[in-house]
């Protein structure tokens, strides 16, 4: 497919361009819904549609008032604060516990490896509605339902599988001789850990942490059940906004989130490249 050979017949040429056109349409389907949100968020009227003024590029058709609403409305500001607090604490718990577990799982001679792995990544496998239902019932019993701690614990549990998977992946092919070499040169186990292991697994840990943070930041189902208005996060606020009174503020928030996810995507990609470079895998 890389370029059309000069001897290609007419049907082949037609198929080649038709195929590319079809693929173009599919890419359009993938990207258009995300891009279309951006201009709509600058709408001057409280609808999800393009007005006549917007199409003719009349400045009167555009406004920043939905962004202003987002930055001044206490409901949204509370949601931002909660999202950040819950995201950070659940990520810290998930990253710490997940990294330790991944180090254990990657050691040679670990018994029951498959079973352990299956249990540890189960929060990623079980449908969110079931996790949400179970946590709602259980956390109500022990009075954690509707508390920040309950939500943080729930989100940490949902985030750990991503840390376990990314860090385990970084440790694949980890040369155990490095640890022996370090020990034979007189380093204590602690020193070996911080000077040898940590720098090597750091990209995996950060990527896993990012995944855990995004999971918490983007999570709606569990927080709807385990949390209450006091714990409202940005997705919680968006969900109730869409259900009750639809306002383009949601689109403004969506635009900001698209921007953030683009940044995160770039960060993860850079980490991945760094990791591959460190491990001597050349990008072709």
């Amino acid at each position: 497919m890389a370029g059309l050979p000069p001897y290609a017949s007419t049907p082949e040429r037609i198929w080649y361009y038709l195929f590319r056109f079809l693929c173009g349409l599919i890419f359009f389907f993938l990207i258009f819904p995300i891009v279309v949100v951006i201009p709509l968020s600058f709408n001057a009227v409280p609808f999800f549609t393009f007005t006549q003024e917007m199409i003719t590029l009349d400045p009167a058709g555009y406004s920043l008032k939905w962004y202003e609403d987002f930055f001044t409305n206490l409901n949204w500001q509370g949601a931002v604060r909660n999202s950040v607090i819950i995201g950070i604490f659940s990520t810290l718990i998930a990253t710490f516990l997940g990294t330790l577990a991944a180090l254990g799982l990657s050691r040679p001679h670990i018994p029951f490896r498959t079973t352990l792995m299956g249990i540890l990544i189960s929060p990623m496998i079980v449908p969110l509605i079931i996790s949400a239902a179970g946590m709602f019932f259980f956390y109500s019993r022990i009075n954690l339902q509707g508390t920040h701690i309950g939500v943080i614990l729930a989100h940490a549990a949902l985030g750990t599988p991503f840390v376990v998977i990314t860090v385990t992946a970084t440790l694949v092919g980890f040369d155990q001789n490095l640890i022996r070499a370090s020990a034979s040169l007189g380093a204590t186990p602690t020193r070996t850990f911080f000077k040898i292991i940590v720098p090597l697994i750091l990209p995996g840990v950060i990527a896993g942490g990012l995944f855990a943070f995004v999971t918490s930041f983007d999570e709606v189902v569990v927080i709807l059940f385990v949390g209450s208005f006091e714990q409202r996060t940005i997705p919680w606020q968006m969900f109730s906004g869409i259900r009750e009174h639809i306002s383009p503020t949601i689109l403004a928030v969506a635009t900001i989130l698209v921007f953030i996810s683009t940044l995160l995507l770039t960060a993860v990609e850079l980490l991945r490249r760094r990791n591959e470079r460190l491990r001597g895998i050349r990008l072709t």
Partner: peptide
């Protein structure tokens, strides 16, 4: 990009569409 974009953003976009 869609993979990394919030689920609610994409659902909202489809409501708008």
């Amino acid at each position: 990009l869609p993979f990394w974009t919030s689920l609610l953003v994409r659902t909202t976009a489809w409501i708008a569409l």
